[in-house]
Design a protein around this nucleic acid. Sequence first.
RNA 1: GCCGCCAUCGUCUAGGGGACUAGGACGCCGCCCUCUCACGGCGGAAACCGGGGUUCGAAUCCCCGUGGCGGUACCA
Length: 404
Amino acid sequence: MLHIGGARTALYNWLLARGSGGQFVLRIEDTDRERSTPENVEQILEALRWLELDWNEGPLSQWERRDAHAAAVQQLLGEGRAYEDEGAVRFRVPEEGEITFQDAVLGDVTNPFSAIKDFVIQRSDGSPLYNLAVAVDDRDMGITHVVRGQDHVSNTPRQLMLLRALGANPPVYAHIPLLHGPDGKKLSKRHGAASVQEVRDQGYLPEAVRNYLALLGWGYDESTTFMTTGELVERFTLERVSKNPAVFDEQKLRWMNGHYMRELPPEDLHHRLEEFYSRSIPVEIVAISREKMQTLADFWPLAGALVDPPTEFDDKAWSQWGTSPHLPAVRSALADANGWDPEEVEAILRKLVDERGVKPKEVYQPIRVALTGKTVSPGIFESVAALGREETLARLDKALARAE
RNA sequence: GCCGCCAUCGUCUAGGGGACUAGGACGCCGCCCUCUCACGGCGGAAACCGGGGUUCGAAUCCCCGUGGCGGUACCA
């Protein structure tokens, strides 16, 4: 599971690394012993792959670099920078003074030493703690930039002290704002789309998610909203990252996703829908649904009845339109059609509307209900054309029979 | 409690002393388009947390307050 906030952090890291032309070396900060099992890391990498963020997998810090961490602790112990305390090892923090670091988004952050206790860097069982592990890893892996959530700001002085004690050049730190739920509190599962996996299953496009995530806590100028990944890479800078926490707004993501769906070449959209539903879908039906969807998951409720015949009729829809007196005339007019394309169908139906002197809706809605069982579908001319003459007439007959 | 960070429409944000009667976007409301649902077009309501300073002039700088968040672990 890759939390949406984590995905945004990963995206910022990625944009920065790409934008630097390979000069920056970054690391996904996730040394959680529970989550950092190989399986869980694979899940995270899979989520990143879906977002199309290629990532060079490195070693799993606390699982695979124990020797390096232990050696660093020994070094600090030997130099008197750390001491043993009931089996655990603590780093010695000065009594007086303060420590300042420059943050690429927050500016200077200063902490008095008096607020930092001597902290444990190695447990009594010999395992390293987070602050020690990342400091050693940053040094050994030549990390140049650490971009992470603001929940890490107060860890930074500790890591900085460690880094200095270990004789390493500290990286550039950038703490990006946290994501909050709609209630203003920390984002949690109950707030809806919380993980990349869920967002994917809800039918969002990776390019839309990327674009949206980039804009949560960062903006390019006063009006640009849609940006390709290339533009994002080119334009992204830490200086423009906001200091304020953001709220994940699914409605805006939906809107943005709809835009990306409509931008997609029809064949591409068709392919993604078939992939999403794991089944084949007629390309014509996808084509006529394009303007009406915001997510891939919107397709079936909208046009599924055109793909597979409806098994039942919506009660309200049927009672309002199902027994329309115009239906028999529609049936025979269509049966006499010379051709079968949207234009031809439209001509026939418009003529019928004209002859009967009724509102277009009086004729079109009954057809829609007869064909799909519902009052919502793609355009009626396009739907009829896509269904084909035989299927259309068969469905009309079925509805006609039912009406008796 | 202590330490730190933050504070512009409901939401994401633009703004870095005069261009601000505060701009854009989502959402919302109205109108247009219209065969449903949408798309699209046009218009509208909607914000600088409060109080002191500094300055000819503050959303922008400083201080205080308030509020939110984070940390204060042999969690990450």
